[in-house]
């Protein structure tokens, strides 16, 4: 499972960085979204991968069993919410840029003030 997880995160990061370096805003937004998936999976993996450990529910964890670490789950939840919000804002900002300058290129080639 570790290998699948590691290659998955690696592939997401590679694709995300490649898209981030594109010259139009839409691929850049997608790239950031992929990178945020990779970061979230990475944090989640920081809590150790285990298919058998029960969730931490008070009174329901059997004696002797080690429950899954709840903190990375909470961190991931926070990170997902934040990246969702920022991605939505980025989309809105890109749309405004298209509306105002008529192009969705990230860099303005014309005016170099």
């Amino acid at each position: 499972m570790e290998l699948v997880m590691a290659t998955g995160i690696g592939a997401l990061v590679a694709a995300g960085v490649w898209l981030l370096l594109r010259e139009r805003t839409f691929p850049v937004v997608l790239g950031l979204a992929l990178l945020s998936y990779a970061a979230n999976l990475f944090i989640f993996a920081g809590g150790r991968l285990s298919a058998t450990s029960p969730p931490l529910v008070l009174g329901e964890v059997a004696a002797g069993a080690t429950p899954a670490d709840p903190l990375p789950q909470a961190l991931v939840l926070t990170a997902i919410v934040i990246s969702f919000g920022t991605t939505a804002y980025l989309v809105a900002l890109s749309l405004r840029l298209v509306g105002e300058s008529g192009t969705d290129e990230v860099d303005d080639r014309g005016d170099q003030a």
Partner: peptide, 10 residues
């Protein structure tokens, strides 16, 4: 920043 935090917590 997030990746660093994940690594640090791990």
């Amino acid at each position: 920043f997030l990746i660093a935090l994940g690594l640090l917590y791990g």
